[in-house]
């Protein structure tokens, strides 16, 4: 059994791009807001040609895929040495004691 399909025609709107950027914690500049919808539209349309590929039933089973056929190993649950705290904090933009310091979480809005 072969499955193939037509992907929905996506027209990427500025609102879609804004939604995606919110998901990705990005904010677009005005110029990016102008250019990206068309660029993404083109890319998404191009990758959408994948719909034309006929996929055999056996390939359609599940989507997990490891590039080489060896089973992923499990490690025994033994505590080992972690990175020393001083090294962990060494690159912190801001720290206080043993903690990474960040701006307030709640905006109070």
């Amino acid at each position: 059994m072969l499955t193939t399909g037509r992907l929905p025609i996506i027209v990427v709107m500025k609102s879609d791009v804004n939604y995606l950027s919110r998901l990705a914690n990005l904010k677009l500049t005005e110029e990016e807001e102008r250019q990206l919808p068309a660029q993404l539209d083109k890319i998404i349309d191009w990758v959408g040609q994948l719909a034309q590929l006929e996929i055999e039933a056996e390939e359609a089973e599940g989507e997990n895929f490891t590039p080489v056929d060896f089973a992923l190993r499990l490690e025994p649950d033994e505590p080992g040495q972690s990175l020393p705290l001083a090294e962990v904090l060494a690159m912190a933009p801001e720290k206080e004691g043993d903690f990474f310091k960040v701006p307030r979480v709640l905006t109070g809005k």
Binding site: V47, L50, A51, L53, I55, E56, E59, A60, E63, N64, F65
Partner: peptide
């Protein structure tokens, strides 16, 4: 779909 295509 891409993951399945990869397997193919």
């Amino acid at each position: 779909r891409a993951a399945r295509a990869r397997r193919a």
